[in-house]
Simulated scan of single mutants.
Amino acid sequence: MTKKRHTLAFIIPSLTIGGAELQTINQINYIVNHNLFDIRLLILSNKVPLYEQIKLQRDHIKILNENSSTTIDKLFFKKLPYILTQTVTFLRDHQVTDILAILPMSQFISRLAKGTNNLLGRNISLSSYYRDVEYKTTPLDTIFKKTFNALNSGLAFLFDNRSLFISNAVHEDIKQNIYVRRSLVLPNSLPLNQVNSDEGKYFLAANGISEENFIILIPGRLHPKKGHNVFIEAFKVILESNKLNKIKVIIAGDGPSRLEIENKISEYNLEKYFYINGFTENKLLLSLYKCANLVVIPSIYEGFGNVAIEGLMQQSLMLVSNTGGLGEIISDGINGFTFQCGNSIDLSKKLLFIYENKHKVLIEKSVMLNDFKSNYTIESQLKKIFKFLNLNLK
């Protein structure tokens, strides 16, 4: 008996710079490089700065160029007929049998599209891939949000076949607010990429940053939920104690909070201690992990924390907030250090402890790398995803 041919479509709102987008690119590229499965990609907007990183052949990708909305907002509803029609057509033309819907906008559209396909006699399996603590960061605080969420939950009950979550924190956040069917909690992953420190050292020299400094790296997007202000407050407390000497903080990222962060640094007269690099290419960022004495991730909310598993991969000493998925990746004193989320005093105490013991081996590098290889490789993750989706790899 001939097996049914399956085609899996990844559906995502955009290919902008973010954890969900980068993880999707990594997954697609690994599938393509290893010829694992017949896949397609639908991007629901014209926001695609990372498009050239995708290795999937171009006739297997569709970009909805007439839409610029990447979230469920007024513009999205205005463009809803166009987005839905294009999605249904894409699924039909590519004979898609299975959907992996990433982020809320894609999940809502995919539910509507599956319902439309059901009416047309075409059966599609839909799996929603949840990647953030959506309701903590965007609470249901208006009648419209509550009404729309109730509608979306009803659509999830009707059309979702499975649900994937990148952390237990995300699972708890989602299942308390929307219907969930057949759950799998599976952490993010990365292709193993152990770089050396050469590019990072060149960056330091080019920007007048001496390697004699105790270098703290804060990687990731500049956004209120990422906790940069908490770190600045903690740093100020330690500095006032006159216990820091030859120290430099590199903020490697960009985003809507950049001006606020710059103003905070200026307000406390800390300019000589901080260097904000803006958007940082991943190869350079990984090399900076190697150069840094400490990587700090001070997030207020974090669904998972790709920057933390990058740190494990590069065997970097890390100090992270215990919020959300970060607290599931880093165990205090085992593979890194944690501090109480949002607590600048606790952060300052941990930061000072690490600084004062900078000549000691606080965490063995082999522990970090073994943790990464055991839990966060993309090969093992994709095998588990395809098994959960009931799809057989080539």
Rank of each mutant, 00 (worst) to 15 (best):
L100W: 05
Y268V: 04
R92H: 07
H171L: 14
T116Y: 13
E211Y: 04
Y289Q: 04
E172R: 14
V307E: 02
E267M: 06
I31Q: 01
R58Q: 13
Q314P: 05
I334W: 13
L391A: 06
A205D: 13
G200F: 02
G220L: 04
R131L: 13
L22P: 00
D332F: 08
F203M: 08
I216C: 00
L190F: 14
L190V: 11
D160R: 04
G227H: 00
S14R: 09
L347G: 00
I43D: 03
Y268T: 02
L80E: 00
Y202V: 15
I265Q: 00
R122V: 14
R92K: 15
L317M: 05
A206K: 15
V296Q: 01
L393Y: 09
I17S: 09
S348K: 00
I25Y: 01
C341A: 14
N117H: 13
S14T: 11
Y301G: 02
Q53P: 05
Q27E: 15
S366T: 15
T97F: 03
L155F: 10
A252I: 06
N123D: 13
Q53D: 15
Y130M: 11
R181E: 14
G305R: 06
I345H: 06
F337P: 07
F279S: 07
L50V: 12
L140Y: 02
L362Y: 08
T70Y: 01
R92S: 00
K243W: 00
K387F: 12
D160E: 14
L158F: 13
G255P: 05
Q107F: 07
N306L: 13
L286V: 05
G327S: 08
R40F: 05
V307F: 09
R182E: 15
S167T: 06
V133I: 14
L50E: 13
H94S: 10
D332G: 06
N269V: 00
F214T: 02
Q53H: 14
V32D: 10
L42N: 04
T323I: 08
L284C: 11
E310P: 03
V195K: 14
I61M: 09
S299P: 05
N117K: 12
Q194E: 15
S210K: 10
S167A: 14
N168H: 14
E134P: 03
T97H: 03
K201D: 11
N29T: 14
I385Y: 07
I216F: 01
S348T: 01
I11P: 01
R258L: 11
A292G: 03
C341M: 11
E310L: 06
N65M: 12
I330G: 02
P187W: 12
I12S: 11
L259H: 07
G154Q: 12
K47Y: 11
N322I: 08
S348D: 00
L75A: 07
P139D: 04
I166M: 10
V133W: 00
F372I: 12
A252V: 06
S321T: 09
S69E: 09
V133K: 02
L42I: 11
I61K: 05
M313P: 10
F279Q: 08
T2F: 10
F108A: 06
D160A: 09
L91H: 07
F10W: 12
Q176M: 14
T85N: 13
K264P: 01
R122D: 08
T116D: 03
K394W: 06
A9Y: 11
L44P: 04
T377H: 08
M368Q: 15
F388L: 12
S125I: 07
H60F: 13
Y376V: 09
L217F: 06
P219F: 02
I354C: 04
